[in-house]
Amino acid sequence: MGLAVAVLGAGAYGTALAQAAAHAGHRVRLWSIEAPVLAEIAAQRRNSAYLPGVRLHRRVRPCAEMAEAVQGAALVLVAVPSRVVREVVRRAAPLLRPGQAVANAAKGLEEATGLRMSQVLEQELPEELREAIATVGGPAIAREMARRRPTALVAAARDPEVAALVRTCLENAWVRVGLSRDVIGVEISATLKNAYAIALGLCDGLGLGANVKATVASLCLAEMAETVVCLGGRRDTAFGLAGLGDLLATGYSPHSRNRTLGEKLGRGEDWQAFLASNTVEGPPAVEGCLRLARALGLHLPVLEALHSLLFEGAEPRPTLRALLERASLPA
């Protein structure tokens, strides 16, 4: 029969995670506030608003009521944008019981507080559930994972048994899940890759070629590793699935919204209109991570350049040229 798994959020990533869990043999309840999305899943086994062309497994059951979705679930996956994680978890908290685990799949910091998502969960969940918190990272372009393309994720938790539960719920014939105790490293890497994907898209938009993009990617990875270590994570996490892996997927995929934002910026297109009509985690990640970096006394030239482009009106080509001329090269 498998386990009961709840997924809160029926966007592209949440639906892809639900698809993975269903194909792993579990009974999945997919919750959303979007009634048309739930109705289409119930009637046609499709979520054309977020994952067009994908037929969902029969074990994915849409739920309009959060209480129904989380009741008896071994694992509750929170797969909503980082800006609403606190609101969703606060709503779910009274419905949860001891023995359930909660895993965050959002990749970002809370804008108002600068907290990582697991820290938000710790504040909102009952005390008896705070050791059963995990985070999910890694290169997971939703439309690829939902179409059964080979995908590797990482589940991080202080308690190895909680991370192992996430693996049990998601691992199937095409999804593998690595385990980690480095919650800080996974979350900071996952957040920064959204920011740095904008820089890689900028290289595409300016038409600067593979050499420049590879150089910028190397600078981004060096900054990511330094930040992770200074915040208490492990350097090797930045070079694993949650860091380098996710940076490559997000920074090179044509389906990445963060990369597309950077590309539009480089081409001189209306990137602000794109930002207004899409959920893009990169810009708030730039602000949040730069605040953390400055508090630690870190000098992160790529992040500073992104901030000047997104929030200070800097011009793309001279900004990138200055970065390439002045930044220390990670030899």
Rank of each mutant, 00 (worst) to 15 (best):
Gly209Gln: 10
Gly288Asp: 09
Gly297Phe: 04
Cys289Ser: 15
Ala190Met: 11
Val228Met: 06
Ala210Trp: 13
Ala238Ile: 08
Arg257His: 15
Arg234Ile: 00
Val186Leu: 13
Ala273Tyr: 02
Asp182Met: 06
Val280Asn: 00
Leu248Phe: 14
Ala217Val: 09
Arg176Cys: 04
Pro284Trp: 10
Ala195Lys: 08
Ala293Thr: 05
Tyr252Asp: 02
Val216Asn: 00
Gly297Ala: 05
Thr191Tyr: 02
Leu200Glu: 02
Ala195Met: 10
Glu263Cys: 13
Val186Lys: 11
Gly266Phe: 02
Asp182Gln: 07
Thr227Lys: 01
Leu202Gly: 08
Ala293Gln: 03
Leu179Ser: 03
Gly233Lys: 04
Val286Asn: 01
Met224Asn: 01
Leu231Ser: 01
Gly205Val: 09
Pro284Cys: 13
Thr250Gln: 03
Leu275Glu: 04
Gln272Gly: 01
Arg259Ile: 15
Asp204Pro: 10
Glu223Pro: 07
Ala173Thr: 12
Ser218Thr: 15
Cys203Ile: 08
Gly262Pro: 04
Val183Trp: 01
Thr260Leu: 15
Asn258Phe: 06
Gly232Arg: 10
Phe274Gly: 04
Gly205Ser: 07
Arg294Cys: 07
Gly243Pro: 06
Cys169Val: 14
Leu261Trp: 06
Ala222Asp: 12
Arg181Met: 01
Tyr252Met: 15
Glu226Ser: 13
Ala225Tyr: 00
Leu170Gly: 02
Tyr252Lys: 05
Ser256Val: 09
Glu187Leu: 12
Gly232Thr: 07
Cys220Gln: 07
Leu192Asn: 02
Asn258Thr: 14
Cys203Asn: 04
Glu287Leu: 15
Gly209Tyr: 10
Ser189Cys: 15
Pro283Gln: 11
Thr215Gln: 09
Ala273Val: 12
Ser256Ala: 15
Cys169Trp: 10
Ala273Ile: 05
Phe274Pro: 05
Pro254Thr: 13
Leu206Ile: 13
Val280Glu: 00
Gly205Leu: 04
Gly205Phe: 02
Asp246Gln: 02
Glu263Asn: 05
Cys169Arg: 08
Ala242Asn: 07
Ile188Asp: 03
Leu219His: 03
Val175Trp: 01
Thr279Gln: 11
Glu223Ala: 09
Leu221Gly: 00
Ile188Thr: 14
Asp204Glu: 13
Leu202Ile: 14
Glu269Trp: 04
Gly251His: 06
Gly209Trp: 11
Ser218Arg: 14
Gln272Thr: 14
Asn211Thr: 14
Arg234His: 13
Leu208Lys: 10
Ala217Met: 11
Gly266His: 01
Val175Cys: 02
Lys213Cys: 00
Arg234Met: 11
Gly282Arg: 08
Leu261Ala: 09
Leu261His: 07
Cys220Lys: 05
Glu269Arg: 06
Gly243Asn: 08
Glu223Leu: 12
Leu265Arg: 05
Gly297Ile: 10
Asp270Leu: 08
Gly268Glu: 11
Ala197Gly: 06
Leu200Phe: 01
Leu221Gln: 11
Leu179Thr: 09
Gly201Lys: 13
Gly262Val: 08
Leu221Asn: 00
Leu206Ala: 01
Gly245Pro: 05
Thr227Arg: 00
Arg257Asn: 04
Gly251Asp: 04
Asn258Val: 15
Gly268Gln: 11
Glu281Ile: 13
His255Asp: 14
Ala195Cys: 10
Leu208Gln: 11
Leu208Pro: 00
Gly232Met: 08
